[in-house]
Amino acid sequence: MSLKSGLAAAFALALATGAATVSAGVVISQDVVVSDNTAAPRTDHQTVMIQGHKQAVIEGNREFLSDLDAGTTTVINTDTRRYFAVPAGMLSVRLIWQGSFIELKKTAISEKVAGYACDDYAGSAVVAHQNLMVTKCVARDAPGAREFVEFQKAQAARLKRSPATPEVQIPDGIPLSSGITRTTMPFVPPRGFPPEQAARINAGLARYKPVTNITTVTKIELKDLAADVFAVPAGYTKGESREMTPHLVKVAPKNPAPPGTAGSPAASPQH
């Protein structure tokens, strides 16, 4: 092989390698254990797929598709073959309930999950009369960490105009394990509120036990993802926005805000 042809081959290989790096996506398989202390814990499986500014999250018969460049998020119900557009404000609330956009501080604890070393972060916030305690073990060197963090930062930049989305520092890596504990806060009556009624409200709230979600990564893969992974399948029908709520209730609190109070979803970080 001549020097000229050898250089050309090396250059072509470099271009191909670079293209593969740019186009590679990350697929994260997770187990989610949900417990509210009233029944046996339930384990769900979900898959998160990210490539560039697109993300697909598969949760059973539901899929959440986000395209940051197009500024859209779509919920798909594979059972009914219907899809729904998600407003930015509702997406912000969903992400907050999942522990995103809550300020986390690095602790002195390090662990190993799914074969990768990770550092523990912890934080809390008050969200709609619920106290959210969040922990994450974040791996900087896990495969796909750069792609994952870039998407999270781009998504936060897109949503930061929403009053429900506080601006926080995003940990640099993939959370290999995370825990969210949601506890109902007591009702603090305003001045002049009947004490008997306040007591009844708090007695009702006391029936709601803490809800805990523990998410653990079981596998991480790097692969090129086809465009249809992030698209609504052909033949699906667009549904009305009012039909979308049942697809988001899994991330909402089980109990409503106490009567006479404002049920704002905005988070107030507690450090």
Rank of each mutant, 00 (worst) to 15 (best):
G6K: 14
F11H: 06
A12T: 05
L15I: 10
A16C: 09
A19W: 08
V26D: 08
V27W: 01
V32E: 11
V33P: 08
V34L: 14
T38C: 02
R42V: 15
T43I: 15
H45E: 15
Q46P: 02
V48T: 10
Q51T: 04
K54L: 09
K54R: 15
A56W: 01
S66M: 10
D67T: 11
L68P: 10
A70P: 08
T78G: 05
D79M: 08
T80N: 02
F84K: 00
P87M: 08
L91Q: 05
V93C: 03
L95T: 02
Q98M: 10
Q98L: 09
G99L: 11
F101N: 10
E103F: 06
K105Q: 06
T107V: 01
T107G: 00
I109K: 14
C118M: 04
D119A: 11
Y121R: 01
A122N: 00
L132P: 03
L132K: 04
L132N: 03
M133G: 05
V134R: 02
T135M: 03
A139E: 05
D141S: 15
R146Y: 06
E147W: 10
F148C: 06
F148E: 09
F151H: 14
A156N: 09
R161E: 13
P163M: 06
P163Q: 04
T165L: 09
D172G: 02
G173W: 02
G173K: 04
R182H: 12
T183V: 13
T184K: 15
P194S: 10
E196D: 14
Q197P: 10
A198N: 07
N202E: 05
A203T: 03
G204F: 04
G204R: 08
L205K: 13
R207L: 12
T212V: 12
T212F: 07
T216L: 12
L222A: 12
A227E: 11
D228M: 07
D228N: 13
G235T: 04
T237L: 02
H247N: 01
V249N: 08
V251P: 00
A252I: 07
K254V: 15
K254R: 15
A257F: 09
P258K: 12
S268Q: 08
S268W: 03
